[in-house]
Design a protein around this nucleic acid. Structure first.
Lengths: 212, 212
DNA sequence: ATACGTTTCAAACGTTTGTTTCGGGGGGCT
DNA sequence: AGCCCCCCGAAACAAACGTTTGAAACGTAT
């Protein structure tokens, strides 16, 4: 992590600090001193703090979406066998693609997503839709095929519900596991939490439609 | 909203601005000028900005938990008929208790919850557990009864997954409804979104257990 | 009317923030 | 060599922030 150039070191430090404290609560001085670079380097290489935040996201999302796009393309070549579980597992695999050696980066990725999702008032939501909306719609399309009993619009809503459950659960997984240990005396691995989450999501996506 | 005393006006303005821009991005000057009070009033009445944030939450959570506690007590008096759907509806009703005349306050409540959950890494979770853990465990106990096939620890995890889905879906409901309108040409009411969410959650909570 | 505790007000405080400036190298090119 | 372009570094910048201050205004009980 310390070998890369100035730009890489800034990104590495920024993503950790952002995930830890939030965007506004992390100063450029904290980032640059952790990265061991000059304060002015951020504005020189990225232009502004906002642009740095966006760059951090881009590095994650490019990895995630590239992997997801490839896996979806594979699945499209063998239709008929796409199930909800397999599609959800595809998302898991894609998320794992962001770790780049450090397994903790998956957690960082989800925490950043949670931050962005709740701050969505501003530029990040538009940015996401503009740059990665295509992959997202591709996923939505395949999922609609996997659950033919659920109308596309219902699938849309359920995917967003699932997104919320995922981001929320995984961004706070550490504290949840601690509570689970103290309340039930059981320590779950990240993989076990992931399995439970996927079961929950699959059940929700396949649930009976509301009365209305 | 402008009739109440200084303390009330500060709280009213603060919750709107916080929900709109986040905690760090909202200055005390913005709050006090919107409330029409002096800047120093916040530190005089609340002590600090952080204490103000906490006070905003307490006002919401007291309403929510009081209502939830009452409804759960009612349900406990007629056991045997408690279903997942009824328990989830109980939560909906409790959330509606925070609106205090203004229906928009429910959305504010959820947006604040989303912000707090993603911003404070577990700290708010601890605060919540300390102050309102009793009500929460009461709910958990009843839910475990309603789904006897799901072990209590699994219920614990699923409730937190459900919490995430709820907070994130409802805190961004406005933009989601806009996307739904543009993608499907359908405008859903808040009630319709709520019904869909509850179906999803019930399906997730009752889902088949993971293989493990 | 006087005295008292509470609340409000304008002003200033000290810090921290993101950003900018300017000077100095280092390596490749003509 | 000289020139150019890219990168780094220390310092300074103005603005915004949360917080504090001390005095004025208030209602109320003596």
């Amino acid at each position: 992590m310390a070998q890369a150039g100035t730009v890489g070191r800034i990104l590495d430090s920024a993503e950790v600090l952002f995930a830890d404290k939030g965007f506004a609560e992390t100063s450029l001085r904290a980032i640059t001193s952790k990265a061991g670079v000059n304060l002015a380097a951020v504005n020189y290489h990225f232009g502004s703090k906002e642009a740095l935040i966006q760059a951090v996201f881009e590095r994650f999302l490019n990895l995630f979406c590239a992997r997801l796009d490839g896996l979806l393309a594979e699945l499209e070549r063998k239709p008929g066998s796409v199930t909800v579980e397999r599609l959800l597992a595809t998302l898991s695999q894609s998320a794992a693609a962001v770790q780049r050696g450090d397994p903790q980066r998956v957690a960082i990725f989800f925490r950043l997503s949670g931050l962005a999702y709740s701050q969505a008032q501003g530029h990040l939501r538009l940015f996401f839709r503009e740059h990665y909306g295509e992959v997202f719609r591709r996923f939505l399309r395949q999922l609609a095929v996997a659950v033919p009993d659920v109308p596309p619009m219902e699938v849309f809503w359920r995917v967003h519900f699932a997104l919320g459950a995922t981001i929320f659960a995984l961004s706070g997984m550490d504290s949840l596991r601690a509570i689970c240990r103290s309340d039930f005396g059981v320590t779950l691995s990240a993989q076990q939490v992931n399995d439970r989450l996927l079961s929950f999501l699959a059940g929700g996506i396949r649930a009976a439609l509301p009365a209305s």
